[in-house]
Amino acid sequence: MPDSQPDRDETPSERADRLWNEMLQEVRVCQTGAQILFGFLLSVVFTPRFTTLPDFDRRLYVATVVLGAVATATLIAPVAFHRFLIGHGVKPELVRVAGRFITTGLALLALTITTALLLLLRTALDATGWAWFLTGAVLLWFALCWLLLPQVVLRRAERRG
């Protein structure tokens, strides 16, 4: 488990409890966003405009909804794990598994947002080239904010430390 901070005086159980609470705070934001996006996506198919979409956009919509469902399930999984494993003395393992679920869920959420954006931009813009370009730029932004910048901060901290 990451987050070994030598200046903390805590037992492994206290550390697991602290990390679990921090993870719950993080995942609450992601879960809410994923659930709202998923709910919105579910309603799109029932609009009159949906039937006029080209085949590619319909398939893109289906892929987006499936990604949204999987992202939502993955981000909610730590709660289900906790519910089933509470009281069994496996919180450190729960924290590790939940961390993997959250990381995977974030990646799936980024893909869901990206494909939803592509669908929206393809529908809103006449120039599909711009839709692809703007969507690619947003995907790069996700990669920068969620992957690259945290690695830069971590490397700088390791060099100082």
Rank of each mutant, 00 (worst) to 15 (best):
V44E: 03
V45K: 14
F56D: 05
V65R: 13
L67C: 00
V62C: 11
A63C: 05
R58L: 10
L41Y: 02
V66D: 00
T47K: 10
A63P: 00
G68T: 01
G39V: 03
G68Y: 00
V62I: 10
R49A: 15
F38R: 09
F50N: 03
V62L: 14
G68W: 01
P48E: 10
L41T: 01
P54D: 15
L41W: 06
V62H: 09
L41P: 02
T47P: 01
F50D: 03
D55Y: 09
T64D: 00
T64E: 00
L41K: 04
F40Q: 11
G39H: 02
A63Y: 01
D55R: 13
V62R: 11
D57M: 12
V45N: 11
P48K: 11
T47F: 09
L37D: 08
S43G: 07
L53H: 06
F40S: 12
R59P: 08
V65L: 14
R49F: 12
L42W: 04
R59E: 13
T64C: 04
L41N: 02
D55L: 14
T47N: 04
V66H: 01
Y61M: 09
T64V: 00
P54M: 04
F50K: 09
L60F: 05
A63W: 00
L60M: 11
V44C: 01
Y61L: 07
D57K: 11
P54E: 08
P54F: 10
L60Q: 09
V66S: 03
F46E: 07
S43C: 07
D55C: 10
V65C: 08
F40T: 11
F50G: 02
V45E: 13
F50W: 13
F56G: 02
T64G: 04
S43A: 15
F46D: 06
V62E: 13
R59K: 15
F50Q: 06
T52E: 14
F40E: 06
T47V: 11
A63M: 04
V65G: 07
R58E: 11
L42T: 09
A63E: 00
R58S: 05
